[in-house]
């Protein structure tokens, strides 16, 4: 599947979905004017991708790296949407790992990470602190 890349903007994160390498990345701040318009196409692409992985589970895990400094509630909703899909794929036998990167002392992002972690059982969810 074609790699999906969007540059980081002041209000939207960098997106790098390198499907063939099973590496997905979201990085930056997220409070787009229209969260549905921004995340809709990403989620649609993810759905098509997960469908393929379910049919042919790869040997190596699918890894999603999130490194976010701030996001609004509409974006949080979109992340939850993505996580629910990944967890469902993991339950169907696709190996999934989500890495939640947050800066030391960033209480908000740490708390969000701890919150989101509770939604994963089949998929692995790691909290990764950086300086």
């Amino acid at each position: 599947m074609d790699r999906l890349q969007l540059p980081q903007t002041e209000r939207s994160p960098l997106v790098d979905f390198d499907f063939d390498r099973q590496r997905l990345r979201l990085e930056g701040e997220s409070y787009p004017e229209d969260a549905a318009a921004f995340f809709g196409p990403l989620i649609a692409a993810l759905d098509r991708y997960l469908e393929r992985l379910r049919a042919e589970p790869p040997a190596a895990p699918l890894i999603l790296d999130l490194r976010l400094a701030y996001f609004n509630s509409s974006s949080a909703k979109a992340f939850m949407n993505i996580f629910q899909r990944l967890e469902a794929a993991a339950r169907d036998g696709v190996e999934v790992q989500v890495n939640w990167h947050y800066q030391t002392d960033d209480e908000t992002m740490m708390e969000f990470g701890e919150d989101f972690r509770e939604d994963f059982q089949a998929a692995r969810f790691e909290l990764c602190v950086f300086d």
Binding site: S73, S74, A76, K77
Partner: peptide, 8 residues
């Protein structure tokens, strides 16, 4: 999405 915004 207001309700989640209000909770936030």
């Amino acid at each position: 999405g207001a309700s989640i915004g209000l909770i936030e």
